[in-house]
Write a protein that binds this DNA or RNA. Structure first.
Length: 904
DNA sequence: GTGTGTGATGTTTTT
DNA sequence: CATCACACAC
């Protein structure tokens, strides 16, 4: 077994013959799995999973629903390929999106095949494999193999320089925006010559294309590339050098792709080049570009639906139709052994270039593909699955899977839907629920709050702080994005790669050495004029007398420092060198002398940085990994509630999940609707689906009737997604919301401002806040358990219904986009005098979306005495459109929308 | 260079 | 409203 790593160099030989592995493989198999015919690793797989593992030849698409054992299939499949001697470890290309996924996969393969996993140099993220390819063939892209990888921050700074150099106003043309445009282009695999004329014109007075070109040239002189290049350069290299591509065709016997629904066009092109062998596609070069056009046009839904029906595998049948190991013995390899695993229903990254279409038309791209569905869910209760499946069924462009489970435990609760008056109450109630779970011996670690937008987190954090409840926020600011880390890295980068001007510029004057803008400009100009890196230019300038004494001395010191460190690079352990650099540059001292509150933390982070360097064998390899690895570890030891966005929850699971903020405008998010139209809505729905399917046992959804958006209170209506949940699996829980003394109605009754007239004054009744206890909640819930329909009959809910009835899901097709004027609750709810906010519904591809718009002058005037349900009585002090500034007797001055107050 | 003031901005995030 | 980035003045 140990032989594997020793044999590695041999494995890595691209020319190793495919028929050779039998001996080693046999050894491997015997070593790890006993001697019977069905190896251990296949045991415990269900029939579909097993089919997905054993169908090694030809293109395979595994549609793996949430919680159906996707990773298990992927890893077992690799183990199977290795154990049966189909390929050497080094002949398998396995790509993931995140480092986390790659790590997990590696670890799990390791459990199955032992050290053979170490021989898998081509297991990694798209980007890390891209780097590897690019380092090998850098010269074909006009780079040296020691190129640096710039992160977004560097890129923006660089572009800013270019915009200024172009004589353009960098305010009118923000560098950040252009960086995003470039990113978008690269996601589509487009270089400066490929971009659409319109796109090129749209930026910088029509100079978009030139700017993009200039950017690429600048990167080349810097011997650097951005993230997008890690994909685009290899694509270009493959296209321009068939012999190179051929080498990889020979090498990669098996290709596996994780989360295929998240691939963007560039990644698709990249995969296609590698997977499509010449004989099967003579035109591969033009295929992707052509296709990219077709993709946008849509119209794939039907075709994929049709094909999916054809290829459909009933969950209870092991589909013997496809004899798995056809290719044994004959090593012709004209078929493409590519296996993509994904779930079209979990595609939630369209906004950053992912093309769901890639997965939807897999069988068009790879004719004769086997499509295997994994629908047996091992994660959630039947209620949760039922709710999720019903919701996602509202989407059109999808393969269509139905998750099922064998679990049928009667004690499993339904999915709970809760209403709250506002986000504060929402946080409070969630906190209470969490505490009650905690009393039932649930670990906080097993609970998660998944929000649509990160601003929602704060309210929960605040609440948990006052409760003294541990929580952890996942996906916050990343370690490597911190100022001090980036500074330190810049030092290291200049040492490792003297031509890294961006890094040099970042730290020439750190700590402050009196090298101001003027000096830096001069260095810059000298460097450009002589076509040398800035570091060299700085050394030259320091020796000339073109500078004033002070900057000259400073510069001399800087360049002497770097010269010394660069020399030390050869013979000093890298962690030691790193420490020396930070010491000698005065960087650590700088923070030691800083008495701001952050300083100690920053020093701590620097220590952590050095510590993490130990895992790498050299400064260079460290820098490379860090450029690609942006995720930071969280301490799992602490028992704490997890708070994160829905996006970052993908792939995770929790016993208990809370999903707050299910309101129109927030979820689905207004902007997704405005910018994405129907597909935007569908992506939001998939996000909802992801959220629901994270839960194993308990699932609580929340919506509030009032939310503060951009500083002012707005009324909200329940998310349409709530309507799309099946009643059979959902239970609307009435939460006690008597806190704060705004009314004795239950959540259901107070959905919206437009509730019964007398409720207003009564609501003001001072109910003792302490009078309410958790038991009230319980009581309320039970008492009103028949309240399911009750709740759905509340004004807010009915309004939501009414707004939607005529534009049902079926009507989407019409791209009419006509505007439907609809007067909101102001007019329809007669009971409430102040409902003057008009709600202007407008259609998005036929789907009605409620939107608050100030299109009517307020009916109030300054000085009016009014009542607000949250803040009580007050006088209007000023009016702007429908926004009122009110001096409340108790609450002080607030700005609220006029729909929220009633004349007294 | 540090500090204050102004103004724009206000989803989701990986690499 | 609240935050952050940037510009300007000391």
């Amino acid at each position: 077994m140990s032989g594997f790593s020793e044999d590695m160099p041999f494995f890595d030989e691209p020319n190793a013959r495919p028929s050779a592995p039998s001996g080693i493989a046999a050894r491997a198999m015997a070593a790890r799995s006993g001697h019977n015919n069905a190896p251990d690793y296949l045991k415990g797989l269900n029939p579909e999973q097993r089919l997905a593992v054993e169908t090694t030849e030809g293109p395979v698409l595994v549609l793996a629903g949430a919680g159906t054992g996707k990773t298990r299939v992927l890893t077992t499949r690799i183990a199977h390929i290795l154990a049966t001697g189909r390929a050497f470890p080094s002949q398998i290309l396995a790509v993931t999106f995140t480092n986390k996924a790659a790590r997990e996969m590696k670890q799990r393969i390791g459990l199955l095949v032992g050290e053979a996993v170490e021989g898998m140099p081509w297991l990694g993220t798209f980007h890390s494999i891209g780097v590897k390819l690019l380092r090998r063939h850098a010269e074909l892209a006009g780079l040296r193999s020691d190129f640096t990888i710039l992160d977004t921050d560097d890129v923006v700074r660089l572009i800013k320089q270019l915009i200024q150099a172009e004589g353009l106003d960098d305010k009118r043309w923000p560098a950040k925006q252009f960086a995003q445009m470039i990113d978008g282009w690269k996601n589509k695999g487009q270089g400066p010559v490929d971009i659409a004329e319109g796109d090129a014109r749209a930026f910088a007075n029509g100079k978009g294309r030139e700017l993009y070109k200039a950017y690429q040239e600048r990167l080349k002189t810097l011997n650097a590339c951005d993230f997008g290049d890690l994909l685009c350069h290899p694509i270009r290299i493959f296209r321009a050098n068939p012999d190179v591509l051929k080498e990889y065709h020979k090498r990669f016997k098996y290709i596996l792709v994780d989360e295929y629904q998240d691939t963007n066009t560039a990644q698709y092109m990249w995969l296609r080049l590698l997977a499509q062998r010449p004989q099967s596609s003579p035109l591969e070069g033009e295929v992707p570009a052509k296709r990219a056009e077709g993709v946008a046009a849509g119209g794939t839904a039907q075709s994929s639906n049709a094909s999916s029906t054809a290829a459909r595998t009933p969950p209870d049948r092991a589909s013997p139709g496809h004899p798995p190991l056809k290719g044994e013995g004959n090593q012709r390899h004209s078929t493409v052994n590519i296996c993509c695993v994904g779930d079209d229903d979990q595609s939630i990254y369209g906004w950053r270039g992912a093309e769901v279409d890639n997965i939807l038309r897999f069988d068009k791209d790879f004719p004769g593909a086997t499509i295997i569905r994994l629908e047996r869910n091992y994660r959630s209760t039947a209620h949760i699955l039922g709710a999720a499946s019903h919701l996602i069924a509202h989407n059109e462009g999808r393969f269509g899977k139905t998750l099922f489970t064998d679990r049928d435990e009667p004690e499993d609760g339904k999915v709970h839907v809760h209403a709250a008056w506002d986000s504060e109450e929402e946080a409070r109630a969630v906190g209470e629920t969490i505490e009650s779970y905690q009393r039932q011996q649930h670990n906080l670690n097993d609970m998660a709050i998944l929000v649509r937008a990160s601003f929602q987190m704060r309210e929960f954090e605040d609440r948990f702080v006052t409760l003294g409840l541990n929580y952890r926020v996942i996906g916050g600011p990343r370690f490597y994005e911190r100022l001090e880390i980036r500074d330190a890295m810049a030092f290291f980068r200049v040492v490792a790669q003297g031509a890294d001007d961006l890094a040099f510029e970042r730290i020439v004057n750190v700590p402050k050495r009196g090298l101001g803008e003027a000096t830096i400009r001069q260095i810059h100009d000298t460097a450009r004029a002589l076509r040398i890196p800035m570091l060299e230019a700085a050394a030259k300038l320091a020796e000339s007398d073109e500078l004033k004494p002070k900057p000259r001395a400073a510069l001399r010191e800087v360049s002497a420092n770097f010269e010394r460190w660069q020399k030390a690079l050869e013979n000093t352990p890298h962690t030691e060198l790193a420490e020396t650099i930070l010491e000698e540059s005065g960087y650590t001292d700088m923070w030691k002398n800083d008495r701001s509150v952050e300083a100690p933390g920053r020093l701590e982070n620097l220590k952590e940085l050095i510590r993490s360097m130990e895992e790498y064998e050299s400064l260079r390899s460290f820098l490379e990994h860090v450029a690609l690895v942006m995720d930071s570890e969280q301490n799992a030891e602490l028992d704490a509630v997890n708070i994160m966005t829905l996006h970052s929850a993908k792939g995770l699971e929790f016993e208990t999940v809370f999903l707050p903020g299910w309101e129109e405008g927030l979820f689905p998010h207004q902007r997704a609707l405005d910018e994405g139209g129907r597909s935007g809505l569908e992506e939001e729905r998939r996000l909802a689906y992801v959220g629901l399917t994270r839960a194993k046992k308990n699932l609580h959804l929340w919506f509030v009737s009032n939310r503060r958006i951009h500083g002012l209170w707005q009324s909200t209506i329940p998310s349409r997604f709530l309507d799309e949940l099946p009643e059979a699996h959902v239970e609307v829980a009435e939460s006690g919301n008597s806190y704060g003394g705004y009314g004795n109605s239950y959540g259901g009754g107070s959905f919206a401002p437009g509730r019964g007239g007398q409720g207003g004054s009564q609501g003001a009744g001072r109910q003792n806040p302490y009078g309410a206890s958790r038991f009230d909640n319980v009581g309320a819930g039970n008492e009103k358990s028949g309240a399911f329909s009750n709740s759905y009959a509340t004004p807010g809910w009915q309004r939501a219904q009414a707004n939607r009835t005529e534009a049902t899901d079926r009507n989407w097709g019409s791209r009419s986009g006509h505007q439907v004027e609809r007067i909101g609750y102001g007019e329809t709810d007669s009971g409430y005098g102040a409902g003057r906010t008009s709600v202007k519904g407008h259609t998005i591809d036929g789907e009605l979306v409620a939107k608050s718009v100030a299109d009517k002058p307020s009916a109030f005037s300054v000085g009016d005495r009014v009542f607000h349900q949250k803040f009580g009585n007050g006088n209007i002090s000023s009016i702007e459109g429908n926004k009122l500034t009110i001096d409340f007797d108790k609450a002080g001055q607030k700005r609220v929308l006029d729909g929220f107050v009633a004349a007294v």
